[in-house]
Design a protein around this nucleic acid. Sequence first.
DNA 1: CGGCCCTAATTT
DNA 2: AAATTAGGGCCG
Length: 223
Amino acid sequence: MEIPVTATGVPSAVLVRTGYTVSYNPDWRIPNWVAYELTRSEASAHGKREGGFEPDPEVGRSSAENNDYKGSGYSRGHMAPVGDMKWSRKAMRESFLLTNICPQDFDLNAGVWEDLESALRSRARKYGSIYIVCGPVVDSGYKTIGRKRVCVPGRFFKVVCWQERGDWRCKAFVFPNRKCGGTFHDYSTTVDQVESLTGHDFFHLLPDDVEHRIEAADTQGRW
DNA sequence: CGGCCCTAATTT
DNA sequence: AAATTAGGGCCG
């Protein structure tokens, strides 16, 4: 359900992990998207943050390295967050692979981005499984950092869908890659808009009429 | 405070 | 060289 159809013409190596699936872009050295289902029990797990950032051996030389991020002015921002992987030590460890990481502004990472992650865990605990996809929005002429020329995204998206009282619902967000004021609600948009920005097709397993209806609707304020 | 990170120093 | 420890900054 959560696995998108990747935009055509975009380099992609799909890697299936314990807690998430990633479409890795070997040219950009960052993911195209990261997708996973977050269940009620997974979102209820808690424990010590454990693990360290490391290159992904599964993609060989195309992996970003820690040196690329060092002193770059950007943090190593998780796409599938550690906080959503605490139900398994292996899943937690795998979340630190640099194929799951993007150069992200420090204050965005620790600010509204983290806030949204936390809010989604709450929703999963309250309503059951939710399906989460997130990743970068890369503009032409993007900046890079490090020897491996790791792409610095201009924006980040996060789209989610879930079933509530028998109805499918979804929400979408886009954040600029810098300190974002306000709350994550201020960055709400439509799934259609994110599809337009990225070229990916989200939640394509939904019945066509449902997909068409809810992905066009801006659901701001309606959780 | 706990959570997202960072760097430097120290140990092995 | 690699792992661990200690300390710092920012956010909500």
